[in-house]
């Protein structure tokens, strides 16, 4: 069961919300977009390499169980991805509206329920089919107990296609955070990726990518109000389509550094497997994403089930 705590200090809620500041979309691409067009791009420059326009959605159901007290929790999220592409220009909007989310805190082995609304707007230009320049504006609001945390980031990125199917990309985002009653904070998020992609959407395709996301934080502090999140995320994915079917694998590792002097690293490791139908004009893909999170000696098991669906216009 998800426990609700309303009598603790706001600093605790802030601390938990700060952990969410490290969160990325569950499935994200930096150098090249996924072969599943219903999944979001993480930078504007990535979005440029899409094939055509997309109207996509995603539902995510999650279950969690800690190994300590064996407490359980559930989550349910709905995401959207809209992409519009002309010869040179790509516009993409993706985000999350509402839903139930859970956050595990290993120190006391408890789950907390929180709410999230976020939106991402991406704009990119593709030059001569070998250069992509993109910008992005991201806004999110997370609420835990009586604390509302607003995060806003804007940034730009650059993507290059080398040869037939080698892609490299880099982006930088300036992130700012507002929590009523606390000082505003600012930090930088850097993203880099390299990928291979071959084939066309009307045939068989192959894609693999390795990406890094560094969410810069401030020096360590004694209380949550003094610090900002700091994390490193590595993403590795392998996808291919064969005869109208899409096969997908992705590994994600997120390390959240202990910005509090007395806290411990939080490490999440995820493996995602996907299988589904993928044609030129529609897709229906099912993913299972299993993960383990450790915090010191505490541990929780996570299972996510994703269903993406979309209509595509090339």
């Amino acid at each position: 069961m998800v426990e609700r705590h309303h009598n603790s200090g706001r600093g605790i809620w802030l601390g938990l919300l700060l952990l969410l500041g490290c969160a990325l979309p569950a499935q994200a691409q930096v150098a090249t977009p996924s072969l599943d067009p219903s999944l979001p791009s993480l930078t504007g420059a990535t979005s440029s390499w899409r094939y055509g326009s997309t109207l996509g959605g995603e539902s995510v159901y999650g279950s969690y169980q800690s190994s300590g007290n064996e407490v359980k929790a559930k989550s349910l999220q709905n995401n959207y991805t809209l992409a519009f592409q002309t010869t040179q220009l790509t516009l993409e909007a993706n985000g999350t509206q509402g839903g139930i989310n859970t956050l595990w805190e290993g120190g006391n082995d408890r789950y907390y329920e929180w709410q999230e609304t976020d939106s991402h707007a991406l704009l990119a230009v593709r030059g001569e089919n070998r250069v992509s320049v993109g910008v992005s504006v991201n806004k999110s609001q997370t609420t835990l107990a009586d604390v509302v945390r607003k995060e806003k980031s804007y940034g730009g990125g650059l993507g290059l296609r080398l040869g037939e199917g080698v892609y490299v990309a880099g982006a930088m985002e300036k992130v700012s955070e507002e929590v009523p009653g606390f000082d505003d904070k600012k930090w930088t998020r850097n993203l880099a990726g390299i990928g291979l992609r071959y084939g066309w959407p009307d045939g068989n395709q192959f894609r693999t990518e390795y990406a890094l996301v560094a969410n810069g934080g401030s020096p360590q502090g004694q209380v949550w109000a003094e610090v900002v999140p700091k994390s490193q995320t590595t993403l590795a994915s392998l996808e291919f389509t064969l005869g109208g079917w899409l096969f997908s694998y992705e590994n994600t590792k997120i390390v959240q550094e202990p910005v509090l002097t007395w806290a411990q690293n939080r490490v999440q490791t995820w493996s995602r497997y996907g299988l589904g139908l993928k044609s030129l004009h529609y897709s229906l893909i099912f993913y299972r994403r299993a993960g383990v999170e450790t915090q010191g000696t505490a541990e929780q098991q996570m299972n996510h089930y994703h269903l993406t669906f979309g209509f595509h216009f090339i």
Binding site: L89, V133, G134, V135, G155, G156
Partner: peptide, 8 residues
């Protein structure tokens, strides 16, 4: 044609 860029 179209040009696009950004600056910090």
């Amino acid at each position: 044609g179209l040009f696009l860029g950004f600056a910090f």
